[in-house]
Design a protein around this nucleic acid. Sequence first.
RNA 1: GGGCCCUUAGCUCAGUAGGCUAGAGCGUGCCCCUGAUAAGGGCAAGGCCCGAGGUUCGAAUCCUCGAGGGCCCA
Length: 907
Amino acid sequence: MAKEKGKYDSTINLPQPVLRMKANLPQTEENWLEFWQENHIYEKALEQRKGNSVFVLHDGPPYANGDIHLGTALNKVLKDAVNKYKLLKGFKTPYVPGWDTHGLPIEQQVTKQTKVNPDDVAITEWRDKCRDFALSYIDKQMKSFKRLGVFGLWDNYYATFKPEYEGKELEVLADLVEKGFVVRKRRPVYWCPHCKTTLAEAEIEYKEISSPSIYVSFPAKNGDFKVIAWTTTPWTLPDNVALAFNPEENYVFVKVDGETFVVAEKRLSDVAKVLEWKNYEVIASKPGSAFESERFEHPIYGDKETVGITADYVAMDEGTGIVHIAPGHGEEDYSVWEEKGISDFPMMIDDNGRFTDQAGFLSGMFYEDANDVILSFLSERGKLLHKGSITHSYPHCWRCHNPVIFRALSQWFIDVDLYRQDALDALDKTRWIPEGSDVRIRDMIKSRPDWCLSRQRIWGVPIPSVRCTHCGRSILDPRVVRNVAQSVRKSGSNVWYSEPLETFLPPKFKCPDCGGTDFEKEYDILDVWFDSGVSHYSVLEQYPDLKWPADLYLEGYDQHRGWFQTSLLTAVPLKGEAPFASVLSHGFVLDESGRAMSKSVGNVIDPLKVVGETGADVLRLALLMSDFTADIQVGQNILNQASEIYKKIRNTFRFMEGNLFDFKDVDAVPFDEMKAIDRWILARWSEMKKRLSASFDAYEFYSFVSIFHSFCVKELSSIYLDAIKSRLYMRKPGHKDRRSAQTALAVMAKEFPILIAPILTFTAEEMWQALRSHDLVSEESVYLADWPDFNFELSDKENDFWENALELREKANELMEKLRQNKEIGHSLDASVTIYGSGADFLSPAEWSELLVVSSADVHSEGKEWDVEVNKAEGEKCARCWRIREDVGLDDQHPEICGECLDDITG
RNA sequence: GGGCCCUUAGCUCAGUAGGCUAGAGCGUGCCCCUGAUAAGGGCAAGGCCCGAGGUUCGAAUCCUCGAGGGCCCA
């Protein structure tokens, strides 16, 4: 039923908001996107700050092979909030978004999508397909990021496949080569003998297979004992170089049938069972470390020997506690061997999986067939103590489904040891947010082995090394690299595949080893981590408005291992310092119960779906209100909560804006002449702004949200706005008391959208435009405005008063609630109060009534304790202001209204 | 299995250099208002501060161990 309009409605000044109550964000946000784009707001915002300090947040490139997820959204929204805050604070903040575009995952997806294998087409054609695929996802992701309200130089984005990016990348490589940081070493990789190709971890599938499980004895060269090693890959024994012992464990010398064997103490009983030792006796024991440098007979070749080393990883839950080491055929074997400082080791398996000529009697044999030959060889020499079989999970090729092997190949490496300490030192100068988050990257830098740059792939930046056809030497010559770089800059890295090698060779180029003059190209590409790792060169140094180092890197904490590290490791050897002045790392997005989101669990939330249903601003709020230094949880509850917070913020502004419909700057009342409560709210507002700035400067967005929201709820909605309603509505439009309240509202309303813009990026603009329509602000967009530095402070006397007054207000509310429960009053205007307190007369009775939203107040300020009494008001209800007054009916023409209202509607 | 990190009301956060009955907002419940109205106001109920030891006159805060969760490795 429509309420009948009150008789005096026409005499009161009800709010006339422009901002609609219902946000309808999914649709309106699209309009603001258009508005920003058509009017080039971001470009104008940057232009306006030209000459100011530049703040560079360097974008870590997401991989262009899928749709964005909540984690990506969190990352970009955090970045955008920082950028917008800095922008509003007056910094020029050119944000160049980027994408990581090379590598295996894209090759795999292209194969899947197009059913074309890289071998089926020309290399450059394949690379073009991969590029097109990456481009399509850049386009998709870019649209998503824009839709989230992220500001950036989208038309000028960077991508690792762009010619100028690749060109710079190769120039950096040339510098590293020139300064001696790039070395050639061998390292084991997955190799498929059937497909004759290397495989990446992602191309491996694990299947159960049966392998021989053998115990082999290794007689000591100096001493009358034999150690027993266990292996499931007898074919790797020809390439054995060492036996690894756990330095922390104890090893026993066991006498069995006149022979002495060594195994780990913890493995003894199991080994005895397997070898069916009936009578054995432990005659001595030594720690694993004692076997360091001990020499043993080589299991296969009489002219070689093998050496004892120690390794922490040697396990005590299977085998003998002694591990056979063949660096050419195992990742761990390789790294323990390399830790010994020895880079040389045998590897006698060729591309076809067959033993090379060096393997002597095994030469030409397929590795699997060699197992049996080796077993009988060992058996004949009494070295095979036991032969069984074991079923275990073993890597297989994803294409031909055959077992793969580990096989060492020559690769290009960055020799991190040359500058490891410098890299660690560089981290001291970086600010880490949260504090102490640098321990992770430090540990990784300390423990990381050399950086292998070579990848046996197609879609990437080629390593322009050449092979001498005479002696087979691989040569990475800085001059060649530079020539290629120059050409790549112009036409992209396909040139390495499409142009003849002679194009890139310097005149009279000769092999440094043999003097040969005939070369062929090699086709390994650079590790994609090198691609993105050099972005600080390719982007920061090449984009006109950016600078080196960046002010901030902001990524998930998994990037301590990834991009933070690779950026550092490419910067330090050439620059001597880190490419970032500060690094912020954030957590991951989990579901509502704190578990990781995954398709298989089915708890994934699609950010675009949320945007379509509730709007990007609500999503931004949900992401930004949580503490990102830990993992943040997102689910329907949290989205609902964000939605409620959003509504409160929106409505609080709407009320202020709506009450300014007839206010112009010329109507403002000087601060000294404002009503006490109006001065109070401005002081609180100023104080809140300081806290907001402090929390943003510390990158604590979550406190920002809670400070701002809490202010809207408590200070504004509950206390101030509720109190000043009567003044705004009842006084004549131009009445000084009304203008005083409007002055305070105008100050806050004009600053409000600016403060909230980093979070509610669309709504802030909508608010701004509402103010513009009242002519209260002039800038075309909120992003062309500046963070407000206006501050207002109260005297100590005023502050003391308000502390008492607000305490009294709470007490009055409690008392009123009792009356309400007793059905004595309904609305607080049905009550009157009596105030006691020294200094209580700082407010007039009318002002006290306003503050407590009651009909009348009696004030006693003569040296009494602060206290308040609440009673049912006596008198008659004024038909206009709804207060219960004793002066209702003074005028015959207006018998239903009070004296004050009479003044309001007459004269 | 190793390294790093997280754990305060149903939810999001405060809890300053160890010290009052551990706070706020949301949500919930009850009530009021109907001139911010798919709004607004009031009151109230919610906590083994992850667990177990320890240091201390005193611990949510410091130490040790453990549980659950996350990331990165193996």
